[in-house]
Nucleic acid binder design. Sequence first.
DNA 1: TTGCCATATGTCATATCTGACATATCTTAG
DNA 2: CTAAGATATGTCAGATATGACATATGGCAA
Lengths: 103, 103
Amino acid sequence: MRKEKAKRLENKGWKIGSAEDFLGLSPEESAYIDLKLNLSAKLRKLRAEQNLTQTELAKLIHSSQSRVAKIETGDPTVSIDLIIKSLLALGASKKQLARAISS
Amino acid sequence: MRKEKAKRLENKGWKIGSAEDFLGLSPEESAYIDLKLNLSAKLRKLRAEQNLTQTELAKLIHSSQSRVAKIETGDPTVSIDLIIKSLLALGASKKQLARAISS
DNA sequence: TTGCCATATGTCATATCTGACATATCTTAG
DNA sequence: CTAAGATATGTCAGATATGACATATGGCAA
């Protein structure tokens, strides 16, 4: 599967610039993944700033630690919807979201 | 259900300012809906600019006319993921997405 | 009016995402 | 080292989103 690949690469520290379009990903696909990773990164940052553990954030969004971990590691089974809902739960503003996206 | 309500209101032209937080919606919920509606609106705009019908856009994103309609009318069963994928398929840039979000 | 094309709405089987759980792998303090 | 807290990974049943189809409504030209 496509997104699996992208995720594995991310985890191994491949991070080439910002998008991994070097293997079979269409521009839209890599833009989409890029977006997701940017939002994930922002979430981790926000959570850290607020000194919350994944477990605490999980409670806040009525989810589980493992799902929060998946959000933050860019797991392909995580939707942008969930990431955005989590960001909003941490009090992120529209402006912050916008910044995260175009980063 | 919650989001049903928000959608109905939208359709009836209720658009009070920008968020319908006046009936039982938490700040995060209305922020989320707001976001979705902004992105939907942007999609419709982009599609119009490119003189595409819903059916044509549907083919472009491997979906159906009815789902495109649902996207554009803010149907609660539509995910932000799908809206964003559609926007990307229309060639929207990160900057455009960011603008749409913080509008 | 009629016909045609675009858009909207309702429904449904299937695909995808979700929370939860178990368990593994860090990290750091003692 | 070992223990404890935090984070990561794998799995799965149930929840939600999806494309597809039928059908309705809207707009507009003949």
